[in-house]
Nucleic acid binder design. Sequence first.
DNA 1: AGCATAAATAATAA
DNA 2: TTATTATTTATGCT
Lengths: 218, 218
Amino acid sequence: STQASVTTATQSPVVIAPQPSMLKTGATHPSMAPINCGELAKVGQLVNKPQQTASGEEGINLEEIREFAKNFKIRRLSLGLTQTQVGQALTATEGPAYSQSAICRFEKLDITPKSAQKLKPVLEKWLAEAEHWNQKGQQNLMEFVGGEPSKKRKRRTSFTPQAIEVLNSYFEKNALPTGQEITEIARELNYDREVVRVWFCNRRQTLKNTSKINVFQV
Amino acid sequence: STQASVTTATQSPVVIAPQPSMLKTGATHPSMAPINCGELAKVGQLVNKPQQTASGEEGINLEEIREFAKNFKIRRLSLGLTQTQVGQALTATEGPAYSQSAICRFEKLDITPKSAQKLKPVLEKWLAEAEHWNQKGQQNLMEFVGGEPSKKRKRRTSFTPQAIEVLNSYFEKNALPTGQEITEIARELNYDREVVRVWFCNRRQTLKNTSKINVFQV
DNA sequence: AGCATAAATAATAA
DNA sequence: TTATTATTTATGCT
């Protein structure tokens, strides 16, 4: 799948600078990806290389895992759940804890066959149950997931021009302030700390985007 | 720019049963939203208030629109498309232009019934077509989505023998130059940076194909 | 009606 | 895993 290809491409040392245009086409070749980089090979790399399957993976149906991963994502989205929610819910209910990253990596098959094999039934069971609750109404699903039923998106903050000026002056001096510094800036401007933190994140993004354009223009 | 990126997830004819889902879209409580804010009421606000429907909206099936909006989102995600991609594709193909914001607002029903009524068939038609192309392979879908059919393939670059010699000498020293180095080489040879980057990609590919060994092991 | 950008989510690095 | 970046979605403005 494209998903798998993308992962592979990104991990492959062959790729210089992951150019979005390259990624989106799915034109990269999974076969290009070396699986012997001193790490364990991932499902996404192995699934297209049945011949090279190393010892110890005979019992694992990689194709089945890939199918499930693909399906899992769609079903998760159909339920309107985020990777974070799934991870947190699993952590709450089951033995092992799963982070958002873990779910992300499973969906992208950026995971060893052994781990995938272990995780798959857990996800399968949980998802089926979530769908079951969802049938009875979204409220039940949210309870099952453990989220606050009506967690609303935060209202978009408007910064005053004065505040933006101050923020920019700080940004010029240091685009990556420490947590301590963020706290102080937030206090000075009398804004929420989190809001200030996000402002710096987005500001970095913007700068990066614009400067990238400039680079291409050169 | 980098809009149409990695998340080209999960293709394949996986049909999603239109289940009572709770995408974020539907998760908010429309009934809680006040209608009278001095603005025109939105579909999401009206759909649960059939009694209060104002004049001029008799001919519009709000429930149907809500169903479609919900479904549209799921189908869009199943195709692995972003709102941005949809908006851009629609803009490219049809008469009126649609921004990412427009798609977002349609999915959230944050749109007047009249606008929704107008947009719905457009989206319906486009999505069906997109799914059709997807059936034939993700590549077709991406062409359809990104598709300026008029956009011509870049003309194949001819390197002079001298340039190739220089490139090869660089390649021998370092098969995987950094972005900075590529830029410098391109400037020295007076070729397009992208062309040089691709040359290195292709050169590595060639080497790999012929040598069968992984030269790029870190 | 849509740009600019804040907020949220997904992906990657550490 | 946690921390951060990259990408997508949502929304205040006008």
